[in-house]
């Protein structure tokens, strides 16, 4: 039997048609490969192939935009797991949380990670905004990306807020009641707000009823928040993130002259 030659086998694999169709370049540390590494990869291609020195420093970005995005991804992955076991109806929602915690493999861990990542995302997005403000990175030509950022901030809060209701326990319904009571007080559009007579809104037909899907918080609200939380807001947030990232790529990172 011929002696096994590792290098020869390796060469055969990397020269094969299958390998070459997937990996376009070798791994020698050459400037060309460094650039191909980024420009040839759909995910890494979000970056330019070269960046200014300061943008790599933690001191400049605090890494907070990236961490916000990472935590968003964590909630997406863990959220899918939670969706397998959760039914958004008043009869089942709370019991499903209990089953998830005690009967499902890694259920508690997934729930914890989902929740803490969501809270972390709110904190990270605030720190990110603070950093962008402190470096004055909203100044021309990046004004509009700041506006997109504020929309993302609002979406982050809405994502977190709609998720808060889903465990359907005392904490969630009352926190959401308090939060949504604001809608009741909307001028003109809320039945508890100033000038509500003008449009004739009432408890079953006003801004809060629009959010709740009825006069009171109830099963209809649960379903509504579930759909907003799992489909609508993640979708919208992804779209705005795409815009956000694309504009960073086009304008380049801000930096000192």
């Amino acid at each position: 039997m011929a002696k096994f030659d590792w290098n020869e086998t390796k060469r055969q694999i990397t020269d094969s048609q299958a390998w070459q169709s997937i990996f376009r370049h070798g791994y020698e540390d050459t400037p060309r490969n460094r650039i191909l590494m980024v420009s040839g990869n759909v995910w890494l291609h979000l970056h330019p192939s070269k960046v200014q020195k300061h943008t790599v420093r933690l001191r400049f970005t605090w890494c907070m935009g990236g961490i916000t995005f990472l935590l968003f991804l964590v909630t997406v992955i863990t959220g899918v797991y939670l969706m397998f076991y959760y039914r958004p109806t008043a009869e089942y929602a709370y019991a499903d949380m209990k089953y998830l915690e005690f009967d499902m493999p890694f259920g508690m861990l997934m729930r914890n990670m989902h929740r803490w990542a969501a809270h972390g995302m709110v904190i990270a997005v605030w720190l990110h905004m603070f950093r962008v403000f402190m470096t004055g990175s909203y100044k021309p030509p990046r004004e509009f990306n700041w506006v997109v950022g504020v929309i993302l901030l609002v979406l982050t809060l809405l994502l977190s807020f709609t998720g808060y209701l889903l465990p359907w326990d005392q904490l969630s319904i009352w926190a959401v009641t308090v939060g949504s009571n604001m809608a009741r007080a909307t001028p003109l559009l809320g039945h508890g707000g100033p000038f509500h007579e003008v449009l004739g809104v009432n408890p079953v037909y006003d801004a809060r009823a629009f959010i709740f899907g009825g006069a009171e918080i109830g099963p209809h609200t649960l379903l509504r928040f579930y759909i907003l939380h799992c489909i609508f807001f993640p979708l919208i947030a992804s779209i705005f993130m795409a815009v956000h990232f694309w504009r960073i790529r086009r304008d380049g990172m801000s930096g000192p002259l």
Partner: peptide
């Protein structure tokens, strides 16, 4: 962005 003065690094 940048001044073109600053040294650039490879992203990868």
């Amino acid at each position: 962005a940048g001044g073109g003065v600053e040294e650039k690094l490879h992203t990868w």
